[in-house]
Amino acid sequence: MTTRQVEAPPISALRHKDLLGISDLTADEILLILDTAEAMREIGDRPIKKVPALRGKTVVNLFFEASTRTRTSFEIAEKRLSADTLNIAATASSVVKGETLVDTALNLEAMAPDMIVLRHAASGACHLLSRICRAGIINAGDGMHEHPTQALLDAFTIREHKKSIAGLKVAIIGDLLHSRVLRSNVQLLTKLGADVWVSGPPTLMPAGIERQGVRKTTSVDEAVEGADVVMLLRLQIERMQGMFFPSLREYFTVFGMTRERLKLAKHDVIIMHPGPMNRGVEIDSEVADGPYSVILEQVSNGVSVRMAVLYLLAGGAEHETAV
């Protein structure tokens, strides 16, 4: 693997019980996860896509927000590692009966799961669970805070195309304010030495974002110029129109990613989107489906990265079972 020579982690295990956010990881730990994910991907290419690494371990996917994509990705990752998995969707659980998050978690704890993969609408929900649960908590998206496995799979995808992340110009464009994908990516990319630019309407710019080591601009052209990577963020259009920007049409005109605009980027730029996309709003279909797009690769890399995270948190290198 060529990337190993460039960025090889000097460590072999994570120090953590949980993955709450990229903010808790060092650059070395990020690289360890990415390298482990490369080994994991090879499993997906085998005729029998299964290894016994997590046999006998129980993983609960506790999703308080609907997300077919992320939940399915975790589930496939867990099954490939032979874990016993249990899916709990908030609407189907006792949450509707007014049980608190803490109660739900404590009831789950009574069944002694090894890991809980949590998706929740409140920022910090995973931190709350990590303080009361023995099980390891993996953050699958908490409110507007973080979505660490998304940023890891994004980094994995970037590394595949660009070898190293250090020194790349990465432009992240869209609804920055409400995006957990943004926050995780900013943490990760700055830790690995990328030159990160963020752009979008000033009404959707998080306060103090520049203190996180990124450059902000309302000019998409400026952000895209010379970029190696252009990452678009989804707009929650239902709740935004009229207050954050005047109309979808105007948004697309000022901030939308078009083929024309993309000409400002490097000739080998890659286009990313965490999905699901609003075609014709943040991204033109020509770009989404065009030659620079790696959007579908992101989806398939998600499984490898989540396998790596599960494997490393469940015991990692100390685990006797070879991958």
Binding site: G143, H145, R183, A207, R211, Q212
Partner: peptide
């Protein structure tokens, strides 16, 4: 409070 910390933690300011 709207500012760097709320922003980083994803809390509405």
């Amino acid at each position: 409070h709207e500012g760097y910390h709320a922003s980083t933690l994803g809390l509405r300011g």
